[in-house]
Design a protein around this nucleic acid. Structure first.
Lengths: 351, 351
DNA sequence: GTGAAAGCGCTAACAA
DNA sequence: TTGTTAGCGCTTTCAC
């Protein structure tokens, strides 16, 4: 096959050593910014690197180092479908990454409990871990734990819900304000010219992702669909039973509800309620996250659209980004941008 | 950092050699299915591989071989924005892949010209190339060229438009029938209860992707929106000038057009026409492919939605798949599945 | 049929 | 401050 077709093969450390007239060890010291090299020698080597257009072969370097990327995911231990899909993707990737010198550890901490998350982060051993991905709330204790990890050389990314006030290296997830805007635009168009009220189902207003979606939603409804009236959020705390209890009360209190925005992980309770109350089949409903349940609801016409973010993409992106930070390599921001997916029953992926 | 934290490090060829009581060379022969090893020895080695749970370190293998992946993209030489975005992504990836022992060559052939494509494919030297990605029509000559490449050990993937009757290893692109269905569902909902006619703008009915979109579109309109009447396709051959000429004729001939489905690369001519004829601002319009032009049209409200496939994802996926086939490694079909993206102005990615 | 040994690009003792 | 050398996991001559 194509061994080395081109005459001028890519330069290696040996070429640098030869051109700069130094030894391999010195080249290596300069490449890895290790101390103990005279400034003048450093310059000589750097010039050679520049002249030759050298790019380091990361695979060879990792082989020589015996390097293993040790990454940790910390997720809330709720059992909703979205979290489960993240877990499945992590598990799937764990196997694939064996080929790739990367080890993933999956931790769970109590949901909606910042202190539990902080404790878990504080227990991480900097000698053994290269990067951490967390999905949790934005509180002072969490911020502190992030700072502590960063200070000990560990890269940190926030997953799904951002923690912008912290020192996290990167956020992996959608722009939740834009997601809320998108939901509003779809719902507004789907209900048509009819006036009426919109019910918003959320998890917890403490969760930044939920809060942001609501903000974006309200913004577009009031701007583009002033004939619609958005009610106060129903906080279901991602608990199906709670949602199923709260829904009938809310719907009874407002007979003119014509649409629902299920902005968090309350789809379970919502669908159960809809199944039991077919009289609400006229409601236009936009939900979040494509899961087995929401697929079914889309297919049956209970949901009109689902706003989603691809769990596989989230997890793979987190791994790529953590490895890149760990190697101080650049990241491809276009590739790592998580898109706000819109699914109708027509464009649902098969699987 | 995390050098080798675990006690039982992953098994290597040395371990296999030791356990099977053979030399490294023999292990290598078995691993790579090379001849000249007695059956009994092969079995011994395979047993050791099995027992140890060995997985080959591809990076180390590639290093030792001096292997370079040589991939070729063949695209039509039209200058529309979608092709251009593919080109940009290819160019961007070309740099990144230098770190990764992968060389990409980008070829262009006359558009809508199967023979030109075949000639280009036939000129490829199997000694120098590992994989080819093509975006072109499904004709006998193209099929033959694909078969020829495959026979000489080169992997082939079809890009954007499938060639299912051929021996291509894989198709990288969206399900275009589903894309057409999605466009229909959106357009149907956006026009509301109003009856009227729908104009479909296409490139060429010879192109499988265009044809399939139309099929899916008609299916959903006739099923879910029988009050809408879809007119015969306007074939713009992806030529802005032609589209701009044909459009006014079509619209004049049918005064009751209330929606347009721009299913191919005719957005350029369409937008120019809309700019010049603001009286058509009530038209509901669904177009294909998110590009600078369609972004602008979405932002201004000229387009109501854009159906798209991510060019970066297409290109990266093609590379991953071609490398995997070339190494006879499994592919992650979930990751390689190209999604049918729906964009409103609210969920357009920033960049 | 099988094995010994050198080497891919890079790193890391250990000397000097 | 610098250089020599062995070795990471795998492949590949070249002997035997």
């Amino acid at each position: 096959m194509s061994q080395d077709a081109n005459i001028t093969s890519t330069p290696t450390v040996n070429d640098i050593a030869r051109v700069a007239q130094v030894s391999l060890a010195t080249v290596d010291r300069v490449l890895n910014a290790r101390p103990g090299v005279r400034k003048i020698t450093v310059d000589k080597v750097n010039k050679a690197i520049e002249d030759l257009g050298y790019v380091r072969d990361t695979a060879a370097a990792n082989l020589a180092r015996g390097r293993i990327y040790n990454l940790v995911f910390i997720l809330p231990d709720t059992t909703n479908e979205f979290i489960r899909s993240l877990e499945l993707e992590i598990a799937a990737l764990t196997d694939v990454l064996k080929r790739d010198r990367t080890k993933i550890t999956n931790m769970r901490v109590a949901a909606f409990d910042p202190m539990a998350l902080s404790r878990a982060m504080n227990e991480i051993d900097p000698a053994k871990v290269d990067g951490v991905a967390i999905f949790g709330p934005e509180t002072p204790s969490v911020r502190d734990s992030i700072a502590r990890l960063r200070a000990s050389g560990i890269s940190v990314v926030s997953l799904v819900a951002d923690i912008p006030s912290s020192e996290r290296d990167h956020y992996i997830g959608v722009d939740n304000i834009a997601a809320g805007r998108t939901a509003a635009q779809l719902l507004g168009r789907f209900v048509g010219d009819k006036a009426g009220r919109i019910l918003v189902l959320t998890g917890s207003m403490l969760a930044r992702d939920h809060l942001e979606r609501r903000l974006g939603f309200d913004e577009v409804i009031s701007r583009d669909f002033p004939h619609l009236d958005v009610m106060a959020s129903l906080e279901g705390r991602d608990d199906p039973a709670l949602v199923e209890t709260l829904l009938p009360i809310a719907l009874k209190g407002a007979r003119d509800v014509i649409g629902i925005y299920s902005s968090a992980a309350g789809n379970d309770g919502l669908v159960r309620y809809l199944d039991a109350h077919p009289e609400h089949s006229q409601l236009k409903i936009i939900a979040h996250e494509l899961t087995p349940l929401s697929r079914m609801a889309l297919g049956k016409g209970q949901f009109d659209a689902v706003i989603s973010q691809n769990a596989g993409h989230l997890v793979r992106s987190a791994v790529r980004v953590l490895r890149a930070y760990s190697d101080k390599l650049p990241i491809n921001s276009a590739q790592e941008q998580i898109r706000i997916d819109i699914y109708l029953k027509e464009n649902m992926p098969l699987d």
